[in-house]
């Protein structure tokens, strides 16, 4: 009988993937969880909003992104909990006294032993410390090493290497401006004019997408002198608005250009 695999509370993996799209957390204590990413659970698990009193100490130690607080909860209790996100690929990552920066919409859950902070690159979150976290990607993640230039929309995150810088392709801009757009009015940014450039030692995580996952609260930074992007506009979720010819689209929004 070639039936499907049937899982129960005992056979569900502990802190491991059930299949490429679902992850099973063996909860015995607390995990931070993005809202709505739990699809099923066994056992007795409570879900607490962040900033609701009695978990203040935990949150003070692990959660340093006030703008994301409304999107996250703490799962507390004993049991097996299944996490998934719109049938995207789900991976778990182990950090050992390390750091990894990831697009905010891709992060599903993390252990409280990690500290979550907002990256200086808007829309990205940095996890620091030792522990496990779970993240989603559109298709399997592809790992590459610098030096490499990456379409910003294909970037999932990066580990260890320095934060990226912007790279503009002069040739493309010139050809683009002089050619296609002038003749046809077809325009817009498509990633070929501009990339994130990574250098140094580390690993860059890529996915195939031009359709971004909704960025839940991209994390506006304080409007103060010396903070890049300060006073930037908090981004609307989903970036599939039609782009104006020649506009920088996402970049404009994400970097407050």
């Amino acid at each position: 009988m070639t039936g499907p695999v049937i899982h129960d509370v005992a056979t569900l993996p502990a802190d491991d993937n059930v299949n490429p799209y679902a992850f099973s957390v063996d909860l015995n204590g607390q995990w931070f969880l993005q809202k709505g990413k739990m699809i099923a659970y066994y056992g007795s698990i409570d879900f607490h909003g962040i900033g609701h009193g009695r978990l203040d100490r935990l949150i003070a130690g692990s959660f340093h992104s006030p703008l994301h607080a409304a999107d996250w909860v703490v799962a507390e209790g004993q049991g097996k909990m299944l996490l998934a996100d719109r049938a995207f690929d789900v991976n778990s990552y182990d950090l050992e006294d390390g750091n990894l920066t990831i697009r905010s919409g891709n992060l599903l859950a993390f252990q409280p032993s990690l500290a979550l902070k907002q990256s200086i690159i808007p829309g990205f979150l940095t996890l620091i410390g030792t522990g496990k976290f779970v993240a989603a990607s559109n298709g399997p993640v592809v790992f590459v090493e610098p030096p490499i230039r990456v379409d910003p929309q294909a970037l999932v995150g990066w580990a260890d290497c320095p934060s990226p810088c912007h790279h503009y392709d002069h040739q493309y801009l010139r050809g683009f401006l002089g050619g296609l757009r002038a003749h046809t009015g077809i325009g817009g940014a498509s990633g070929e004019e501009h990339q994130f450039e990574f250098v140094g030692a580390g690993t860059v995580l890529l996915q195939s997408t031009e359709v971004l996952m909704p960025e839940l609260a991209t994390g506006a930074v304080p409007d103060e002198a010396g903070v890049p992007g300060g006073g930037g506009h908090p981004a609307q979720s989903g970036s599939q608005l039609p782009q104006l010819p020649g506009g920088l689209g996402d970049l404009q929004r994400r970097f407050g250009l």
Partner: peptide, 18 residues
């Protein structure tokens, strides 16, 4: 197709053709 490049390494140029 335009917009299909996700990442590249090396000296590669992308020219839109009218």
């Amino acid at each position: 197709q335009r917009g299909a490049m996700l990442a590249y390494r090396g000296e590669v140029s992308f020219t839109p053709n009218i």
